[in-house]
Design a binder for these strands. Structure first.
Lengths: 137, 137
DNA sequence: ATTACATACGTAATATTATAACAATATAAA
DNA sequence: TTTATATTGTTATAATATTACGTATGTAAT
């Protein structure tokens, strides 16, 4: 896997637990569940759910990962510009999740949010789709 | 509370469990958690979580209620036109949730979705805000 | 260097949210 | 009325997440 990813410079300030959780999510690229992360990192010294949840909380706070709310899962942030706004597509058939950002849809949403009278501080958008692969089959 | 709400006509085809769960959500207007619903309806004869979850699943399927994913809660649908698309504001301070629909923001989102190349079948949007009441204080 | 403070750690216990498996019954359709 | 579908009730268990406690570590100010 790439050792040249966006967040590497900041990773050095992370603690060991935070780092190994982040690395796992980076290498996976898919949304992972907390207890899957725990099982995967037992050999690295993680013993308890709380160790995982604490690392995940911190990484979310830092904008390095996002929680996919409707899946109770966590996914690496694939954007250099890590805000707290999130937008995902979730394939209804295969479950595949992609972060969408910096495209027309999210730009449009951002514009709507700016124009809007509500005091929107951040958002989480989950778009259910049928992905290309599933559409063919 | 109103006994003249949008969905009453269809309610007659609901089973007893589905009906009492729906009524509770209607009367509340707030997002409620499954186990809170269970506790509240013990006196009505609900004994097990599964009875609640089954009723909730069905009501979601019928579009009569929505799940607020990031709160693990369920809220009555306040729209006559109950699609599977959902959009909520959630106050970051007090936790108050409102369904938003048929306003500029959701119309804009709908237009973006129509224009978009992704095969979006439905969406769930959660906008975090500071509500009017909280902003004053 | 020492105090004070914030952050993170490890561990155990527990709380919260959700589903599996099974047998029985009701409802609707053919 | 036979067949198919949906729903029920119950028990048990799985999956997700937090509380509580005591300790350690890093950082900044005195």
């Amino acid at each position: 896997m790439s050792s040249n990813h966006t967040h590497n410079k900041k990773n050095q300030t992370l603690t060991k637990n935070q780092r190994i959780v982040l690395n796992l999510l980076q290498d996976s690229g898919e949304p992972l569940k907390a207890y899957f992360i725990l099982d995967s990192l037992k050999k690295e010294g993680l013993n308890s759910p709380l160790q995982v949840y604490r690392a995940l909380d911190k990484l979310v706070e830092l904008g390095k990962i996002h929680k996919v709310e409707s899946l109770n899962s966590f996914i690496i942030c694939n954007n250099s510009n890590c805000a707290s706004n999130t937008a995902f597509t979730i394939c209804e058939r295969c479950g595949k999740v992609k972060e969408i950002k910096n495209n027309n849809l999210t730009e449009g949403v951002n514009e709507l949010v700016r124009e809007n009278k509500l005091n929107i501080t951040r958002y989480n958008l989950e778009f259910y789709v049928v992905c290309k692969t599933c559409k063919i089959n």
